[in-house]
Amino acid sequence: MLLQALVSGVVLGSLFALLAVGLTLVYGVMEVPNFAQAGVITLAAYVMLWLNQTIGWPFWLAVAGGVLAGGVLSVLTERFAYRFVRTRPLAAPVVALGLLLVLDNSALELWGGDHVSLSPPYAGDVLYLGPTTLPAVGAAMILATVVALLALHLLLKHTRTGRAIRAVSQNPEAAAILGIRLERQYVIAFFISGILAGVAAFAYGPMYAVFPYMADEVLLNAFVVVILGGLGNVWGAVAGGLLLGILESLSAVYLSAAYQTTVGFTVLLLIIVLRPAGLFATGARRVA
């Protein structure tokens, strides 16, 4: 029972981490709460479905197409909306909600409101790990998260682009003085965040269902994670994601499933009161 809850907690936590990393990356460079990320996930999932079932592409090719579509969409939200409100913190939530409405309802208009399922070739398979079971879609979620985050880690730590992104999120003015082109880093950060959203769509779609508002609630949890780890802190988001996933999964088993989200919220509340800069605050960045 406990072990099983832990396993499903890790699966849930991987999803949270994947989303939170995208949110926190964008927050790091641009300081916008990107609620529209949920819409990007939804549309990426629908593109995968459409490529796979209507156009008839093989599953993996369709997934690649959907992930890429997520990246492109995310960049479009930056180019057409967010970049105009970069210096206006009060406007950012409004634009984010507007974009979310546009993206979710585009999905509704294009593909209808029915719950449909994205079924990968391994859909029914189950792995047995000692006394616990792990559905193959859950394993895919963990694997996808690990691969995506490793790739991101390599990018951020070992490439010029990654260094530039980190520089911008530490101090945009200083980065600009040193000749880093801010606009370019914004686009790249949004692209990466969109790619991560696409990967999340691939992992999340088969576990639940694909419908226009599929990602809205998960995204709320991702925001808890982002605060848990500290806004703008990538590894904090990963640790926070796993922590919250396991906590929520345990509370669903031992407390009540109805209040599962409330557990996440209680954690958020404690963090805000006790450590406003996040669990893994380095002190380099003040709570703005």
């Binding site: 916008v32 709460p33 709320l220 605060i227 109805a258 989200t261 409330t262 805000i272 009161v273 703005a288």
Partner: peptide, 28 residues
């Protein structure tokens, strides 16, 4: 009181969560 130490987007996200909680409580 709880959100007194937060500003900007932290405040926005924190307040949003209270909205979610009230909705959950009313439902349950």
């Amino acid at each position: 009181l709880i959100l007194s130490r937060t500003r900007g987007q932290y405040f926005a996200i924190g307040t949003m969560f209270f909205g979610v909680v009230v909705e959950i409580v009313l439902t349950n």
